[in-house]
């Protein structure tokens, strides 16, 4: 006989209280580099492999949807960038809205791995773990797009997966939303402009919400889902 009931009671609730309370545990997020106004070094531009740090109108900017968390900007430069904690990075694309309140309570999610390295998929998988436990919020993974409300895409849509992704989108009933998770899905990441993959999901599908990060932590994805369900108010239409 195992003592799982006893053990379970002893352990107590380990799930994060995230949407109700702030989650401040250490290591919960890898963070993103932060550019403050006083930093203005061309060194940073040359060090960034994915051109996430670029200069517009003589001003350094950070495009988070390109950042691959390589930390070169904080290690290999004279003026190392500081890193922000926090994980509420999800943002709506232009003209995109959350689900109406009728569909906002519970969402069924179909995850499509369109050729990722495994990191984003792993983080998505963690949503099912006791620590994040997305079921308490009414989010469920479904294998069939026929039953899904949200198409969660990870990976830089490879040529092999392009057809499958389009088929899955076609198979979904309306109302449907597409959620791009991870830098590769947002822009192609390190594969951008390559022959192997598309430049992100948005080049073939209308994306509704994006979650940057390489990989984004589970809470960032959870934040994206909550925003999609209309249960978290975020900035919109930045692009």
């Amino acid at each position: 006989m195992s003592y799982w009931v006893k053990k379970g009671l002893k352990t107590g609730v380990v799930s994060t209280r995230y949407p109700k309370q702030e989650e401040t545990a250490s290591g919960i997020t890898p963070g993103l580099p932060q550019i403050t106004d006083n930093i203005n070094s061309d060194d940073l531009i040359s060090v960034c492999p994915t051109r996430a740090i670029h200069k517009t109108d003589e001003k350094l900017l950070l495009e988070s949807s390109l950042c691959i968390h390589c930390y070169r900007c904080s290690r290999d430069t004279k003026e190392p960038l500081s890193w922000s904690e926090g994980f509420e990075w999800a943002s709506f694309e232009k003209n995109s809205t959350p689900f109406s309140s009728t569909f906002g309570h519970s969402l069924h999610i179909c995850v499509v791995d369109s050729g990722d390295c495994g990191a984003c998929l792993n983080e998505t998988k963690l949503l099912n773990s006791p620590l994040y436990n997305m079921h308490r919020l009414g989010f469920f993974i479904t294998p069939s797009p026929r039953k899904a409300d949200v198409l969660l895409v990870v990976g830089a849509v490879t040529q092999q997966m392009k057809g499958a992704l389009l088929k899955a989108y076609e198979a979904m009933p309306t109302p449907k939303k597409v959620m791009a998770v991870g830098t590769c899905a947002l822009s192609g990441g390190v594969f951008e402009g390559g022959f192997i993959a598309e430049n992100g999901v948005s080049s073939i599908l209308p994306v509704d919400i994006t979650v940057p990060g390489c990989p984004p932590p589970p809470l960032a994805i959870l934040h994206g889902l909550l925003s999609l369900a209309g249960r978290k108010n975020i900035k919109r239409g930045t692009k």
Partner: peptide, 10 residues
């Protein structure tokens, strides 16, 4: 009417 879901194979 859409085509049936076949798991996304070619």
């Amino acid at each position: 009417y859409k085509t049936r879901w076949d798991g996304g194979i070619k």
